[in-house]
Amino acid sequence: MIAIQTATAVPNPISLPSNAPEHCPGTESELAGKVDACAGCANQDICASSEPKGPDPALPLIKQRMANVKRKILVLSGKGGVGKSTFTAQLAWAFASDDDTQTGIMDVDICGPSIPTILGIASEQVHASSSGWSPVYVQDNLGVMSVGFMLPSSKDAVMWRGPKKNGLISQFLKDVDWGDLDYLVVDTPPGTSDEHLSVVQYLKESGIDGAVLVTTPQEVALQDVRREIDFCRKVGVRMLGIVENMAGFVCPKCNGESQIFKPTTGGAKRLAEETGLELLGSVPLDPRIGKSADHGLSFIDEYPDSPATTAYLDIIDRIKDILGDA
């Protein structure tokens, strides 16, 4: 197979290394390299020596690459299947609808990459050149990078533990020839774990312009989004606001609206009030959204008259507003 097998773990710049043992005292600790838990850790020698620890060698390279990227936006959600990837794709498509705007999508969902399918480029492959890996282009000004382009077959499972995933993410940031970008939209897997920590840590120096949190109206999803908000506050990532997906369902036969995922606790609106965040908008559940994603089509271009399209466009305008790009 290709480059991913050589993906190596890079030591982490902040707090714990990604390959630290369970009870790692922390690299900054005086006990670093000296406690029982350090036995067998790959970093023990570095920690135990009292020499000052140099920064992660990947960081300057990432900073250099990212210097040409104006805006970096994360799409997050604690819960899976709420529409992170669909929203990422719509956001990027909307940015790229302006011919002069260069947009990139980076899919860091390593175990379940959906972005290639949603953008209709699932059979593409990554090519290497002297300036790095070339992203796959959906159109002239929309480049995409995903682990999905690197698998010999779409059936292959990526059974990787954290350190290997982190290695690939660092490669996506430093080895991909993104070129000059106006926007880089990062699609993440559900949760608050390795992928999220790594993206935040690697991009710390270059700066993340903001995170969009995606949720669905039911409490089970909101609970996970509250955890994601807590995560953003802990790591200091600015939140642009909350997007509520799958909000109401309009029956195509009788046009009656019903709630499939009932907002039993007030939905995203209540959550936004409680947390002091902005509710960027609610997108109704339209079966055609999922269908467009399955076929790799842009929903807002296919169904410009749908209420969901209006909702999407309003949200995207609001995001540009907040970023000061409107």
């Binding site: 990604s18 630290a20 043992p21 604690g78 350190p163 774990s193 920590l197 807590d230």
Partner: peptide, 9 residues
């Protein structure tokens, strides 16, 4: 609302 921000190990 506490997040569990844990890496693999």
């Amino acid at each position: 609302a506490d997040s569990v921000v844990w890496r693999g190990p």
